[in-house]
Design a protein around this nucleic acid. Structure first.
Length: 447
DNA sequence: CGTATTTGACCGGCGC
DNA sequence: GCGCCGGTCAAATACG
C-alpha cells in the first residue's frame, strides 16, 4: 500500500527530530538554521554527531520495526543530548537560560509525543483501511465463487428476494472503486462469461439483453448500483470534476422546473460512468450531480480525489445495505459518515430512485477547525471531509491533495464519480434528499 | 468535416 | 391494460 510513502514520511520526521535535538543543544545561537548547520558541520559535539550517524545508519535498515524505534531513539536522545548540553551550558551560561532550556525541552518532548501519537494514528488508519479492503475483496471473491457454482449447477434456482437484493448491493462499484483500476463492475462483474465493459452497462440496464442471457443473469436482472449525489452551489451549468463528459440527453423531471441533463464519461471508450445534473428546485443555485457507475480507466488527480470520497460514501452505503435497513440507515451512515454531532445535518440516504443513493451536501458551511479536530477522533471520516472541503474551496488544491490522499488510501484505482470543484461553500455533508427514506429502506431490506 | 449538443421518439418499469 | 415517468437513443443541428 502506502508503505513507501509512510517510510518517507517517517524518515523525514526523524530528520526533523534530529534537527530539533541539535537545535536544542545550540539553543543560544541567534539563528536557528545557522545553528543547525553549524552543529552538523562543526566537531563541537562529536558524541552527538556520532550518535546521529549511528541513527542514520540504523535508518538504512528499513525494517518495519524501525519505524517506532526511530521515534524512540529520537525521544531518548533528548535527555542524553541535553545532559551533554547542560553540562556545557552550566559552565558557560546564565542560570535563567536553564529555565528556558527546560521549558523548551518540555515543549519538545510534547511535540515529539504528539508526533508519535499522530504517527501511530496514521499506522492505525492504514491498517484499518487495509483490513477493510481485504474484507471487501474476500467478500467479492466468495460471492463470485458462489454464483459461479450456481451457474455450474444449471438453473441457479430463484434466489430469495433478500439474496437478490444483497447481490445487487454487493455488486456495485465502490468495492471495486476502492480496489484499483481493474475492470469495472457495471453490475455484471460476476458474469465472467460475459464480455466487455461497454456491453456490461447495457446488461445492467437492458431487459432485452438480460432476457437473452436469462439462464445465468435472471437473478441479476434488476441489478442496480449505488449512486452518489453531490450537492454544490455553482452558477456553472455543470461542475468541473476533472472528468470529460458528453451530454446524451435532457429531460424535464417531474416536480422540478429545471431540466435534468444526462452525461456519460468520455475519458475512455466504453466507460460506464454516467451522471445526471440538475438544479435544485428549491434553490436554483444548488447544482445536484448524481454519479453512477465506476470508471474503467485511470483518473486525473483532480477527479480521483472526489472519486475516492464518493466511492467511500458509496461503499459505506452498499456495505450497510447488505445487512438490513437498520444497519443501512443507522450504523452505516451514522458510524462512518458522521459519528459526531454532525450527524443530524450531514448524512442521509435517498429513496427517490430504485438505486440506493447517498447525497454529499457541499452547500453548507462548516468550521474547518472542527474538521481538523474531528480528524483526531475519526481519521477516515475527517479525510473525506477534508478532501471535500478542499475541493469545494480551492480547485487547485485537489491535484496536490490527491497524491497525499492516494498515498494513504492506496491506489486510487477506478472510482466512482468525481467532485464539484466549483462549489461555493465548504462543508461536506450528507442530507436527506428525499422524505421517502422509509420507503427506500424497505427496498434495501433483505426480507 | 469532425465532434459535440439538442431534442423528439422510443422503451421499460411502475402504479393505478 | 393504460398512462406516467425516468432514462436512453439517434437523427438533426450547431460549433470550431
Amino acid at each position: 500500500m502506502a508503505r513507501p510513502h509512510e517510510m518517507q514520511l517517517l524518515r523525514f520526521e526523524d530528520r526533523i527530530e534530529h534537527t530539533c535535538t541539535i537545535t536544542e543543544v545550540d539553543f543560544f545561537s541567534q539563528d536557528h538554521r545557522q545553528a543547525v548547520v553549524e552543529a552538523e558541520a562543526s566537531p563541537a559535539s562529536p558524541k552527538d554527531h556520532q550518535r546521529e550517524k549511528a541513527e542514520e545508519e540504523e535508518e538504512e535498515g528499513n525494517s518495519p520495526a524501525h519505524e517506532l524505534s526511530g521515534i524512540n531513539i529520537g525521544l531518548n536522545l533528548l535527555p542524553s543530548n541535553t545532559q551533554t548540553g547542560q553540562s556545557v551550558i552550566a559552565e558557560n551560561q546564565k542560570p535563567e537560560n536553564k529555565l528556558q532550556i527546560l521549558t523548551l525541552q518540555t515543549e519538545l518532548c510534547q511535540v515529539n509525543e504528539e508526533n508519535r501519537r499522530l504517527r501511530s494514528m496514521l499506522d492505525q488508519l492504514t491498517r484499518s483501511y487495509t483490513a477493510l479492503h481485504t474484507q471487501l475483496l474476500q467478500g467479492m471473491q466468495q460471492r463470485e465463487a458462489h454464483e459461479i457454482r450456481q451457474g455450474q449447477d444449471g438453473k441457479p434456482g430463484v434466489p430469495s428476494r433478500g439474496e437478490l437484493l444483497a447481490h445487487q448491493f454487493m455488486e456495485p462499484g465502490p468495492t471495486r472503486l476502492l480496489n484499483t483500476g481493474e475492470h469495472q463492475d457495471d453490475g455484471d462483474g460476476e458474469h465472467s462469461s460475459s464480455q466487455h465493459m461497454s456491453s456490461s452497462w447495457e446488461e445492467g440496464k437492458s431487459p432485452k439483453l438480460m432476457q437473452e442471457r436469462s439462464t445465468d443473469t435472471a437473478p441479476e436482472a434488476p441489478c442496480r448500483r449505488a449512486r452518489v449525489s453531490v450537492r454544490a452551489r455553482s452558477d456553472a451549468p455543470m461542475i468541473n470534476d476533472g472528468c470529460q463528459w458528453r451530454k446524451y440527453g435532457q429531460k424535464m423531471a417531474k416536480g422540478n422546473p429545471c431540466p435534468r441533463a444526462y452525461y456519460r464519461c468520455t475519458m475512455a471508450i466504453g466507460c460506464p460512468v454516467r451522471k445526471q445534473v440538475q438544479r435544485c428546485a428549491e434553490d436554483k443555485t444548488i447544482l445536484v450531480t448524481t454519479y453512477e457507475g465506476n470508471h474503467n480507466h485511470p483518473l486525473p488527480p483532480a477527479a480521483t480525489v472526489m472519486a475516492n470520497t464518493t466511492s467511500s460514501a458509496a461503499a459505506m452505503l452498499l456495505s450497510g445495505s447488505t445487512t438490513s435497513e437498520d444497519s443501512l440507515m443507522a450504523p452505516a451512515v451514522g458510524s462512518f459518515l458522521h459519528p459526531s454531532p454532525y450527524a443530524s445535518t450531514m448524512a442521509a440516504l435517498s429513496a427517490s430512485a430504485p438505486f440506493p443513493t447517498i447525497t454529499l451536501d457541499l452547500t453548507q458551511t462548516a468550521n474547518q477547525l472542527q474538521l481538523l479536530q474531528r480528524a483526531q477522533q475519526h481519521p477516515m471520516q475527517s479525510m473525506i471531509d477534508t478532501v471535500t472541503a478542499a475541493i469545494t474551496t480551492d480547485p487547485n488544491f485537489t491535484a496536490a491533495l490527491a497524491a497525499a490522499i492516494t498515498s494513504v488510501m492506496g491506489a486510487p484505482g477506478t472510482t466512482d464519480g468525481a467532485s464539484g470543484s466549483n462549489a461555493a461553500s465548504i462543508a461536506p455533508a450528507i442530507v436527506p434528499e428525499s422524505p421517502q427514506c422509509p420507503k427506500s429502506c424497505t427496498t434495501f431490506s433483505i426480507n
